[in-house]
Structures are given as structure tokens and as C-alpha cells.
Nucleic acid binder design. Structure first.
Lengths: 210, 210
DNA sequence: TGTACATCAGTGAACGCGCGTTCACTGATGTAC
DNA sequence: TGTACATCAGTGAACGCGCGTTCACTGATGTAC
């Protein structure tokens, strides 16, 4: 056994751990983390309740692990959008499409973040806040390199980045709630999101000549 | 006994009901509605568990009642801000001050709304969504009468109103989380909120000449 | 005003149930030689 | 390669506990006459 291939024992342990995370995420679609029980999770996975302790200290610990998992995929999506080189209008269209696609692909992850961002478990709230702050920093860094940000203070760029990140989370959870409501409602949400981004983009363009 | 003064019995019942709501709100500062127990609430109030059923069907029912209570005070605050006649910069300053004051005065109400807006109890989520939509409509109505909205479509005005309402909720919960972090952090949040509102206001001013 | 009866907010005991945590254990996997 | 021992992921039984809900009840308040 070398460092890149895990032994059979480690591999099996990882598998069980992932099964616990998957089961937790699934159960969290219909409740909050602070009411999710350890026995519920192990029952779904099909292991003894006590096995849980081989992987997590308690449910809050599992929640923090879910934060990392949930935001990793979002991170990839955001990077892709930021990397694009196109005019403002096109970036807006692509961003809204990317958010819609992300929600369709990872609804449980998005729901978990929206639900627990202000939820009842401190450790999880803090993990989400820290991660979203890193997102904001990353967006700010990308914005700073763009021509429209010439002459902006670092604080102003960060403020705009925060507005974008908040808008992203809002739009994602709007798509999520519309999940069952049909394509009509989804189009309405996408349309509103695009117009809001256009308005913000306009404000950005005129920021210098206030 | 006439219709305006309740009998002793009715008055006592109201008092107990309010005590249950107050206790629930207090207990929800450290957990989510979906994990709050009926017995916890009655224990704090000092009544028998079974007494709960004289007032609410279950905890979700109590939650819906808390939504109405929590948003009533916010409604009053928003109306006051909207009624103001002043230049944009002044309205922004007053709005952010009003939000900060509201959070300082009703922290538990704000926390409840932020937490349960995307929480695990459907009936409560829906009650909050419906109420925030009414807020949006009201803000839109106020915006429509302003000079800057001349030539705007109703849809565009409603889109802007939605942006303001979302920003309000975001800012309120940011103030809340900063609650214990000192005046420094609060000033930073107020400053960011003001700049974001200024940028949105700029976008609004240039919306027509896109 | 006084009396007889109706209402109903709150009681207290009881129920079955699922919870989180502990513990000594088992047996497959890993390691040393 | 084979053997003897160590490790440790997962087991299964047990524990005490608080939960939501039910029920017949009590006694203060309300109503009709």
C-alpha cells in the first residue's frame, strides 16, 4: 500500500462516510440540521447508530463537512463564469443560465446552503459565512482586473462583489423554490435576475462619475 | 361584556397565547423551528403541555403566528422610510439607520425571519414568502409614484422593489450576526449597505438611457 | 340580585416511542518478522 | 510465503430520558332566567 491508493479498510471507511453525508443531505431536504437525528441518518445508510461516531463527532460535525461538499461545486461554477471574456450583457445571460443549471444539477446542495446559512447550528453558519466570504474575495479579485473597475478603491470593489454573491444566493434559492412550479415561473425568475444584474451593471458603469 | 372589552376568560387566554409566542421566539434564538419542542415551550411558560393545544394545532401553527408578529413591526418601519420625502442620499442614510435600529429593537423577530425564510417548515416558509411579496408590492407602489420611475414599466419597478427588499433582509441579518462583534463591525456593515444602495440608485437613475 | 346550569382554559397522569450515547465484542484488514 | 499479533470499522444490546398526544378532570367564568 502506498500513499495514493488507500487500503481496503480505508476505502470502505470513506465509502461509509460518503454514504452518511449523502443520506444526511437527502434527509435535510425536508427538515433543518438542528432537528436531524443521528439514528435517522444511520438507518438510511444501513449501519448501526454507533458506527456514526467512527466518522463524525455529532450532527454539527457532519453539517460542516456538508458545507465543504456543497460549496465546492458552486465554486467551480463561479470560476467558470468569472473566467469568461465577453460584454456585460453576455456575462449576465451566461451567469443566470449557469445558476439555473447549477440548481437543477445540485438542488440538495443549494437547499442545504440556503437553509443553514442562517440556521440553528452555529458551527455550520460560521463555516458557510467563511466560505461565502472567500467567494466574495475571489469575485472581487476578478472584478478588480476588469476595465470597468479602473479607479475604484479596493473597498468599493469588494462591496460590489458582496452584492453579486448575495444576489447569486438569492437567485439560486428562488430557482429552487420554483422547482416544482413549472418552466413559466423559472423563466420569470431568470428574467428578474437578469434585469437586476443589468441595473447593478449600470450603476457600476456610472460609479466613477457620481 | 361588549365586543371591545374581552371577558376575563378571553383576556387570560390571550395572555397565555402571547406567553407561548414569546417563549417560542426566545427559544428559537438558538435553534430552528423544526427542532423546537412543544414541551420546551410550555415548560418556559409554566403551563401543562396539553394546554398548548388550546392555542395552536402544532409548532408549525405557532410558527405561522410568529411570522405575522415578526413582520408586522418590520412593516411599520418600512412604511415610515417610504413616506419620507428627501433626496436619494438622505433616504439611503435613513433607511440603513432604520434597519439598524429595527434589528437592535427586535433582534429575535429578525433572526426568526432570516432563519425560517428558507427553513424546514413549509407552512412557515410560505407565510414568510407571501408576506415579503406583499412588502415588495408595497415598495413598488411607492417607487412608482417617484419621479425617477417615469417611463418605467410596472415589471421593472417591481424588479427594483424586489432588489430593495432582498437587500433589506440581507442587511438586517448582517447586522444581527454582528450583534456581539462590537460597534466597529456594525459601522462597516452600515457603510457597505449604504454604498450598495448608492450603486443601485445610480443604476436606477441611468435605467432609461441604456 | 340570586340561582342553576353550561362553557372551556388549563391540569396531571399515562402511553408508547425514538432518541443519543456507552460498551464490550467481532472479524476482516494490516503489519512485523 | 507463512505465521502471530495489532488495529479498528462496524455490531448489537442496553441505559435513561424527553418527546407528542390522549383523556377524564376541575374549577373559575359566563349565561339564562
Amino acid at each position: 500500500m502506498n500513499s495514493s491508493t488507500l487500503g481496503v479498510r480505508q476505502a470502505q471507511k470513506q465509502k461509509t462516510r460518503q454514504a452518511l453525508l449523502d443520506a444526511g443531505l437527502r434527509l435535510l431536504e425536508e427538515q433543518s440540521l438542528s432537528s436531524l437525528g443521528l439514528r435517522e441518518v444511520t438507518r438510511v445508510v444501513g449501519v448501526a447508530p454507533a458506527a456514526f461516531y467512527r466518522h463524525f463527532r455529532d450532527m454539527a460535525d457532519l453539517g460542516v463537512a456538508l458545507v465543504e461538499e456543497s460549496l465546492a461545486s458552486l465554486h467551480v461554477m463561479i470560476r467558470a463564469v468569472l473566467a469568461e471574456q465577453a460584454d456585460a450583457e453576455e456575462v449576465i445571460d451566461r451567469s443566470v443560465e449557469a445558476v439555473a443549471a447549477h440548481v437543477a444539477l445540485h438542488p440538495a446542495h443549494v437547499r442545504f446552503i440556503a437553509r443553514e446559512r442562517h440556521g440553528g447550528v452555529r458551527a455550520v453558519r460560521e463555516a458557510i459565512a467563511a466560505e461565502l466570504e472567500r467567494f466574495g474575495d475571489e469575485v472581487a479579485q476578478a472584478l478588480a482586473t476588469q476595465e470597468e473597475s479602473h479607479g475604484w478603491s479596493a473597498e468599493d470593489v469588494r462591496m460590489l462583489a458582496g452584492l453579486y454573491v448575495d444576489h447569486l444566493v438569492m437567485t439560486a434559492s428562488a430557482f429552487l423554490e420554483a422547482g416544482g412550479a413549472g418552466a413559466e415561473e423559472e423563466r420569470r425568475i431568470a428574467d428578474t435576475a437578469r434585469r437586476q444584474l443589468r441595473l447593478i451593471s449600470l450603476g457600476r458603469r456610472h460609479w466613477r462619475d457620481r
